[in-house]
Protein backbone atom coordinates (compact mmCIF):
# COMPACT_ATOMS: atom_id res chain seq x y z
CA UNK A 1 0.00 0.00 0.00
CA UNK A 2 1.28 3.40 -0.97
CA UNK A 3 1.52 6.26 1.45
CA UNK A 4 -1.79 7.86 2.29
CA UNK A 5 -1.20 11.32 0.82
CA UNK A 6 0.04 9.87 -2.46
CA UNK A 7 -3.32 8.30 -3.13
CA UNK A 8 -5.73 10.38 -5.18
CA UNK A 9 -8.52 7.92 -5.79
CA UNK A 10 -9.25 4.84 -3.77
CA UNK A 11 -11.93 2.30 -4.61
CA UNK A 12 -13.16 -0.01 -1.87
CA UNK A 13 -15.38 -3.06 -2.33
CA UNK A 14 -17.13 -1.56 -5.32
CA UNK A 15 -20.03 -3.57 -6.71
CA UNK A 16 -22.20 -2.41 -9.55
CA UNK A 17 -25.45 -3.96 -10.66
CA UNK A 18 -27.61 -3.24 -13.64
CA UNK A 19 -30.97 -4.93 -13.22
CA UNK A 20 -30.04 -8.56 -12.57
CA UNK A 21 -26.53 -8.22 -13.99
CA UNK A 22 -23.66 -8.01 -11.57
CA UNK A 23 -21.40 -5.86 -13.73
CA UNK A 24 -18.57 -5.00 -11.36
CA UNK A 25 -17.58 -7.52 -8.73
CA UNK A 26 -15.89 -6.32 -5.58
CA UNK A 27 -13.34 -3.96 -7.08
CA UNK A 28 -10.51 -2.74 -4.84
CA UNK A 29 -7.75 -0.50 -6.14
CA UNK A 30 -6.18 2.91 -5.80
CA UNK A 31 -4.77 5.51 -8.16
CA UNK A 32 -1.73 7.54 -7.21
CA UNK A 33 -1.58 11.28 -7.56
CA UNK A 34 -0.11 12.51 -10.88
CA UNK A 35 0.19 9.08 -12.40
CA UNK A 36 -1.18 7.55 -15.58
CA UNK A 37 -3.14 4.39 -15.06
CA UNK A 38 -4.57 2.29 -17.88
CA UNK A 39 -7.37 -0.19 -17.43
CA UNK A 40 -7.28 -2.97 -19.97
CA UNK A 41 -9.65 -5.75 -20.81
CA UNK A 42 -11.75 -7.25 -23.60
CA UNK A 43 -15.01 -5.61 -24.71
CA UNK A 44 -17.83 -5.89 -22.20
CA UNK A 45 -15.57 -6.60 -19.24
CA UNK A 46 -16.91 -3.61 -17.29
CA UNK A 47 -13.93 -1.29 -17.55
CA UNK A 48 -15.94 1.58 -19.07
CA UNK A 49 -18.65 1.08 -16.49
CA UNK A 50 -15.99 1.26 -13.81
CA UNK A 51 -14.61 4.50 -15.23
CA UNK A 52 -18.08 6.00 -15.19
CA UNK A 53 -18.57 5.15 -11.53
CA UNK A 54 -15.66 7.47 -10.74
CA UNK A 55 -17.53 10.61 -11.77
CA UNK A 56 -21.00 9.24 -11.13
CA UNK A 57 -22.02 9.22 -14.79
CA UNK A 58 -24.07 6.13 -14.00
CA UNK A 59 -26.36 8.18 -11.78
CA UNK A 60 -28.85 8.66 -14.58
CA UNK A 61 -28.89 5.02 -15.67
CA UNK A 62 -32.18 3.57 -14.56
CA UNK A 63 -31.99 0.23 -12.79
CA UNK A 64 -28.37 0.73 -11.78
CA UNK A 65 -27.29 -0.01 -8.20
CA UNK A 66 -23.95 0.49 -6.58
CA UNK A 67 -22.41 -0.60 -3.29
CA UNK A 68 -19.02 0.16 -1.84
CA UNK A 69 -16.98 3.33 -1.72
CA UNK A 70 -15.04 5.55 -4.09
CA UNK A 71 -12.79 7.89 -2.14
CA UNK A 72 -11.35 10.92 -3.87
CA UNK A 73 -8.89 12.81 -1.66
CA UNK A 74 -10.22 10.67 1.17
CA UNK A 75 -13.86 11.60 0.66
CA UNK A 76 -16.52 9.14 -0.49
CA UNK A 77 -18.11 10.57 -3.63
CA UNK A 78 -21.25 8.52 -3.08
CA UNK A 79 -21.82 10.26 0.22
CA UNK A 80 -25.11 12.16 0.36
CA UNK A 81 -23.35 15.44 1.12
CA UNK A 82 -21.35 15.34 -2.15
CA UNK A 83 -22.45 17.75 -4.86
CA UNK A 84 -22.32 15.94 -8.20
CA UNK A 85 -21.80 19.18 -10.12
CA UNK A 86 -18.75 20.11 -8.05
CA UNK A 87 -17.49 16.53 -8.27
CA UNK A 88 -17.64 16.56 -12.06
CA UNK A 89 -15.97 19.94 -12.24
CA UNK A 90 -13.05 18.31 -10.50
CA UNK A 91 -13.02 15.34 -12.89
CA UNK A 92 -12.58 15.91 -16.61
CA UNK A 93 -13.83 13.21 -18.94
CA UNK A 94 -12.89 12.41 -22.52
CA UNK A 95 -15.05 9.99 -24.44
CA UNK A 96 -14.35 7.29 -26.98
CA UNK A 97 -15.62 9.11 -30.02
CA UNK A 98 -14.85 12.82 -30.17
CA UNK A 99 -18.04 14.58 -29.08
CA UNK A 100 -17.64 18.32 -29.49
CA UNK A 101 -20.85 20.29 -29.00
CA UNK A 102 -22.52 21.78 -32.08
CA UNK A 103 -20.93 25.12 -31.25
CA UNK A 104 -17.86 27.08 -32.25
CA UNK A 105 -14.41 25.93 -31.15
CA UNK A 106 -14.27 28.81 -28.69
CA UNK A 107 -17.72 28.16 -27.24
CA UNK A 108 -17.00 24.47 -26.77
CA UNK A 109 -14.38 25.34 -24.17
CA UNK A 110 -16.11 28.47 -22.84
CA UNK A 111 -19.16 26.32 -22.10
CA UNK A 112 -17.30 24.62 -19.25
CA UNK A 113 -16.58 27.98 -17.67
CA UNK A 114 -20.02 29.46 -18.25
CA UNK A 115 -21.82 26.56 -16.58
CA UNK A 116 -19.80 27.24 -13.47
CA UNK A 117 -20.88 30.85 -13.38
CA UNK A 118 -17.81 32.54 -14.85
CA UNK A 119 -18.87 35.62 -16.80
CA UNK A 120 -15.64 37.63 -17.03
CA UNK A 121 -15.03 37.77 -20.77
CA UNK A 122 -11.29 38.46 -20.52
CA UNK A 123 -10.78 35.54 -18.18
CA UNK A 124 -12.72 33.25 -20.50
CA UNK A 125 -10.75 34.33 -23.58
CA UNK A 126 -7.46 33.82 -21.78
CA UNK A 127 -8.56 30.48 -20.41
CA UNK A 128 -9.77 29.17 -23.75
CA UNK A 129 -6.44 30.09 -25.30
CA UNK A 130 -4.54 28.37 -22.52
CA UNK A 131 -6.57 25.19 -22.72
CA UNK A 132 -6.04 25.01 -26.47
CA UNK A 133 -2.31 25.51 -25.96
CA UNK A 134 -2.22 22.75 -23.34
CA UNK A 135 -3.99 20.44 -25.77
CA UNK A 136 -1.51 21.37 -28.50
CA UNK A 137 -4.29 22.65 -30.71
CA UNK A 138 -3.87 26.40 -30.49
CA UNK A 139 -1.58 26.92 -33.49
CA UNK A 140 -3.89 24.89 -35.69
CA UNK A 141 -7.10 26.69 -34.76
CA UNK A 142 -6.14 30.19 -33.64
CA UNK A 143 -7.46 31.74 -36.87
CA UNK A 144 -10.81 29.99 -36.77
CA UNK A 145 -11.83 29.99 -33.13
CA UNK A 146 -15.34 31.01 -34.05
CA UNK A 147 -15.84 28.35 -36.71
CA UNK A 148 -17.89 25.25 -35.92
CA UNK A 149 -16.06 22.53 -34.02
CA UNK A 150 -17.19 20.08 -36.69
CA UNK A 151 -14.87 21.73 -39.18
CA UNK A 152 -11.94 20.04 -37.39
CA UNK A 153 -10.54 16.60 -38.19
CA UNK A 154 -11.26 13.66 -35.87
CA UNK A 155 -7.92 13.96 -34.09
CA UNK A 156 -8.31 17.71 -33.67
CA UNK A 157 -11.84 17.21 -32.37
CA UNK A 158 -10.57 14.79 -29.76
CA UNK A 159 -7.90 17.28 -28.67
CA UNK A 160 -10.62 19.92 -28.49
CA UNK A 161 -12.52 17.58 -26.17
CA UNK A 162 -9.40 17.27 -24.04
CA UNK A 163 -9.02 21.05 -23.99
CA UNK A 164 -12.67 21.26 -22.98
CA UNK A 165 -12.20 18.70 -20.22
CA UNK A 166 -9.35 20.65 -18.59
CA UNK A 167 -11.13 24.01 -18.82
CA UNK A 168 -12.91 23.54 -15.51
CA UNK A 169 -9.65 23.08 -13.58
CA UNK A 170 -9.99 19.39 -12.77
CA UNK A 171 -7.43 17.35 -10.85
CA UNK A 172 -8.44 14.05 -12.41
CA UNK A 173 -8.86 13.14 -16.08
CA UNK A 174 -10.88 10.12 -17.10
CA UNK A 175 -10.45 8.90 -20.66
CA UNK A 176 -12.60 6.22 -22.22
CA UNK A 177 -10.54 4.82 -25.10
CA UNK A 178 -9.57 8.29 -26.29
CA UNK A 179 -7.68 7.05 -29.34
CA UNK A 180 -10.05 4.30 -30.47
CA UNK A 181 -11.40 6.12 -33.52
CA UNK A 182 -8.25 8.01 -34.47
CA UNK A 183 -5.58 7.38 -37.05
CA UNK A 184 -2.12 6.39 -35.70
CA UNK A 185 -0.63 9.88 -36.14
CA UNK A 186 -3.47 11.59 -34.24
CA UNK A 187 -3.40 8.86 -31.61
CA UNK A 188 0.30 9.38 -31.12
CA UNK A 189 -0.18 13.13 -30.51
CA UNK A 190 -2.75 12.37 -27.85
CA UNK A 191 -0.54 9.78 -26.17
CA UNK A 192 2.26 12.36 -25.96
CA UNK A 193 -0.21 14.82 -24.45
CA UNK A 194 -1.19 12.31 -21.80
CA UNK A 195 2.43 11.82 -20.80
CA UNK A 196 2.96 15.58 -20.35
CA UNK A 197 -0.36 16.02 -18.55
CA UNK A 198 0.84 13.77 -15.76
CA UNK A 199 2.39 16.81 -14.05
CA UNK A 200 -1.00 18.39 -13.56
CA UNK A 201 -3.54 15.60 -13.40
CA UNK A 202 -4.19 12.11 -12.18
CA UNK A 203 -5.09 10.29 -15.36
CA UNK A 204 -7.16 7.14 -15.66
CA UNK A 205 -7.55 5.65 -19.12
CA UNK A 206 -9.61 2.78 -20.40
CA UNK A 207 -7.99 1.13 -23.38
CA UNK A 208 -8.18 -1.77 -25.79
CA UNK A 209 -4.78 -1.13 -27.14
CA UNK A 210 -2.08 -2.97 -25.20
CA UNK A 211 0.78 -1.39 -27.10
CA UNK A 212 -0.48 2.16 -26.48
CA UNK A 213 -1.18 1.37 -22.85
CA UNK A 214 2.33 0.02 -22.39
CA UNK A 215 3.77 3.21 -23.82
CA UNK A 216 2.09 5.64 -21.43
CA UNK A 217 1.16 3.84 -18.21
CA UNK A 218 2.65 4.05 -14.76
CA UNK A 219 0.09 1.56 -13.49
CA UNK A 220 -2.11 -0.93 -15.25
CA UNK A 221 -5.12 -2.98 -14.34
CA UNK A 222 -6.75 -5.88 -16.12
CA UNK A 223 -10.50 -6.40 -16.05
CA UNK A 224 -12.26 -9.59 -17.03
CA UNK A 225 -15.98 -10.28 -16.67
CA UNK A 226 -16.43 -7.51 -14.12
CA UNK A 227 -13.52 -8.56 -11.95
CA UNK A 228 -10.23 -6.82 -11.46
CA UNK A 229 -7.82 -9.65 -12.18
CA UNK A 230 -4.58 -7.81 -11.68
CA UNK A 231 -3.37 -4.34 -10.80
CA UNK A 232 0.30 -3.45 -10.69
CA UNK A 233 3.01 -1.07 -11.73
CA UNK A 234 3.25 -0.98 -15.49
CA UNK A 235 6.76 -2.48 -15.52
CA UNK A 236 5.63 -5.59 -13.69
CA UNK A 237 2.24 -5.72 -15.36
CA UNK A 238 3.51 -5.86 -18.90
CA UNK A 239 6.64 -7.93 -18.35
CA UNK A 240 5.87 -10.22 -15.43
CA UNK A 241 2.11 -10.58 -15.03
CA UNK A 242 1.20 -12.66 -12.00
CA UNK A 243 -2.02 -14.04 -13.37
CA UNK A 244 -2.19 -16.42 -16.32
CA UNK A 245 -5.25 -14.60 -17.69
CA UNK A 246 -3.43 -11.27 -17.74
CA UNK A 247 -0.56 -12.87 -19.55
CA UNK A 248 -2.94 -14.33 -22.11
CA UNK A 249 -4.47 -10.92 -22.66
CA UNK A 250 -1.30 -8.92 -23.06
CA UNK A 251 0.07 -11.49 -25.42
CA UNK A 252 -3.23 -11.07 -27.31
CA UNK A 253 -4.78 -14.45 -26.69
CA UNK A 254 -8.25 -13.02 -25.96
Amino acid sequence: MAEQNEIKVEVKNLNFYYGNYHLLKNINLYFKRNSVCTLLGPSGCGKSTFLRTLNRMNDYTEGAKLTGEVLIDGKNIYDKSVDVVELRRNIGMVFQSPNPFPKSIFDNIAFGLKIHGIKNREFIVERVEKCLKYAGLYDEVKDKLHKSAFSLSGGQQQRLCIARAIATNPSILLMDEPTAYLDPASASIILDLITTFKKYYTIIIVSHNIQQAGRISDYSGFFLDGELIEFDEAGNFFTRPKDKRTENFITSRY
Partner: peptide, 23 residues
Protein backbone atom coordinates in the same frame (compact mmCIF):
# COMPACT_ATOMS: atom_id res chain seq x y z
CA UNK B 1 -22.28 12.19 -26.48
CA UNK B 2 -23.63 15.76 -26.44
CA UNK B 3 -25.60 15.19 -23.28
CA UNK B 4 -22.95 13.07 -21.57
CA UNK B 5 -20.23 15.52 -22.56
CA UNK B 6 -22.10 18.40 -20.97
CA UNK B 7 -23.01 16.47 -17.83
CA UNK B 8 -19.44 15.22 -17.41
CA UNK B 9 -18.25 18.84 -17.30
CA UNK B 10 -20.52 19.49 -14.35
CA UNK B 11 -23.47 20.99 -16.19
CA UNK B 12 -26.88 20.49 -14.64
CA UNK B 13 -29.48 18.83 -16.84
CA UNK B 14 -31.08 22.20 -17.46
CA UNK B 15 -27.77 23.80 -18.49
CA UNK B 16 -27.13 20.91 -20.86
CA UNK B 17 -30.65 21.24 -22.24
CA UNK B 18 -30.51 25.00 -22.64
CA UNK B 19 -27.20 25.36 -24.39
CA UNK B 20 -26.50 22.06 -26.10
CA UNK B 21 -29.60 19.93 -26.54
CA UNK B 22 -32.09 22.59 -27.58
CA UNK B 23 -29.75 23.83 -30.25
Amino acid sequence: GYIEGALAMGATKWQATKSVIMK
